[in-house]
Design a protein around this nucleic acid. Sequence first.
DNA 1: AGATGAACATGATGTTCATCA
DNA 2: TGATGAACATCATGTTCATCT
Lengths: 130, 130
Amino acid sequence: MNRLGGMMNMQKERNSTGFLLKQRAFLKLYMITMTEQKRLYGEQLLDLMRSEFKAIGYKPSRSEIYRALHDLMDDNILKREKVKKEGAKLQEIILYKIADADAAALYKIQLKAELDRSQLIIKKALKDNF
Amino acid sequence: MNRLGGMMNMQKERNSTGFLLKQRAFLKLYMITMTEQKRLYGEQLLDLMRSEFKAIGYKPSRSEIYRALHDLMDDNILKREKVKKEGAKLQEIILYKIADADAAALYKIQLKAELDRSQLIIKKALKDNF
DNA sequence: AGATGAACATGATGTTCATCA
DNA sequence: TGATGAACATCATGTTCATCT
């Protein structure tokens, strides 16, 4: 079916039918921005997201946060730094930092477009149906 | 786990984590509104949706349209009417009409809330990340 | 042949369990 | 014992196939 066998998979990040953006992408965007502002580890990022969106009624799951972070490492946008958690217990946590600022910026630009498009869809639905 | 065994499943229509509304619900809303305005059959509803959203880049699949329609019949919001398609071929099509206007109105109210909430999520993301 | 719908396949995401320091 | 992540389960949705007039 694919005429050029060597054409392979660019742009995985896509909604085949083009409906609203996916939660995973949404979370990746937030993980980047939050990491730009402050070094945090997974559990903190989860708590922060939940408290931020509590009023709106959105409560992301723990796994989805970790999956977003792992994705961003695969994309070479974030990198990890293992750290001994200060305090009594010797526990290891994983702090994230930006690995490639340009790649991060590019991803954000793409997500901006996705968010704008999603907003258009919702606004149109509100106009058409109410 | 469930203290009251007889409590059973009210409110199926829900996003467990409360992210954006699902495509199915979005299409059900449109199917109701379009049917209020004009009696149409499945394939026409599909074409209409696709042309309406072509500019935005959203192209719903045929099956998802039919699933939305079937759902609405299960909900007793729409009902069907088999009709011989006028023109040469004797072909049967299925026109939809509102079965219960109150139920339709109620569903729309609920979807309005879902759309508003989704819009809040997207607006917040635009504000927080850009 | 166009319209409908079921069957099938996959993707997105929630839930549970294991591990590690 | 809290943090991390993998394994598992399920739901949402796209694709393919069958049927009927």
